[in-house]
Amino acid sequence: MSKSNDSFGKTLGVVVGLCLVCSLVVSGAAVSLKDRQKLNKERDTQRYVLEAAGLLDKTSGDIAETYDRYIDARVVNYDTGEFLPQIDAASYDRAMVSRNADTSIKPEDDIASIGRRANYGVVYLVNDEAGDLETVILPVHGYGLWSTMYAFLAVEPDMNTVKALVYYDQGETPGLGAEVENPRWKAQWVGKKLFDENGELAIEVVKGGAKPGDIHGVDALSGATLTSNGVSNSLNYWLSDQGYAAFIEKVREGELNNG
């Protein structure tokens, strides 16, 4: 009986010891890879921003160098539309901030199902070779069928003409909702107008297809009604007073500054 107990005790000791060693190895690996993972995430963001800006062909294999040359990331106050130069855009974590009740709000009309909206967000100003503003990129997100979909909306300085809509993180159905990343669908957005002649939001994802010549309409995704609705709801939310409306107005009035 004692030998059996001794055998069980030794086995248990080996198992516990092995578990401790494995946990230390895993923890050590996680810590050592944290900086690498952060850098990879940063590079992914930069690549998608450059794609939205139409600058990927100028990277020459160096994403960071091209990004630093053309892109000026700024933190903006959604409610006032003003820049917050005291906050570093590179280290500002909108997702983390939005989970804090002290630094975010619960939208009154949460049509995009975002849950909470951070008080501040990051916008990307794209400059040409002469340093003049060429494109403004607005991060937008909202819920589709299965997931929250994240995208970059690139517009001309008139804050009305779409240059690109690039989805970079989504978990929709492959072959259906995931077609938000299909180049042919994305190409439809180029040149579309966000607002009508009265300044009212008019961009629309049209079920059954937009009519020829419709400057506000983009074809809905075939067989993916809820994902298409999610795209529309995201834009309707983020281009409204709850999102970038104040910032858009300041840009239009020429109040964009380098503060």
Rank of each mutant, 00 (worst) to 15 (best):
T161P: 04
L133R: 04
V218D: 04
K186A: 13
V251D: 04
S32M: 14
V21T: 10
D79E: 11
M159D: 07
M159C: 11
G131T: 15
M1E: 09
I71V: 14
E51I: 02
I114H: 00
Y124P: 07
E179F: 14
S113L: 07
A112D: 14
Y143V: 08
V140Y: 05
D158T: 12
A245N: 04
N236R: 15
F152I: 08
A101F: 10
F83E: 02
Y70T: 01
G259P: 05
I105E: 02
D109H: 01
D57E: 15
L201T: 12
R252S: 01
V25T: 01
L20N: 10
K58A: 00
S2I: 00
G171L: 14
L33S: 15
A210D: 02
N258W: 07
G217F: 05
G17P: 11
L24A: 06
R43M: 11
A187V: 14
T80W: 13
Y244F: 07
N5H: 12
Y92T: 12
K193S: 08
A52Y: 02
A53E: 07
C22N: 02
G191E: 14
V123F: 04
V122K: 01
E156W: 00
A151F: 00
T148W: 03
I71T: 06
F83C: 09
S228L: 06
V49T: 05
N119C: 13
E200R: 11
M1W: 10
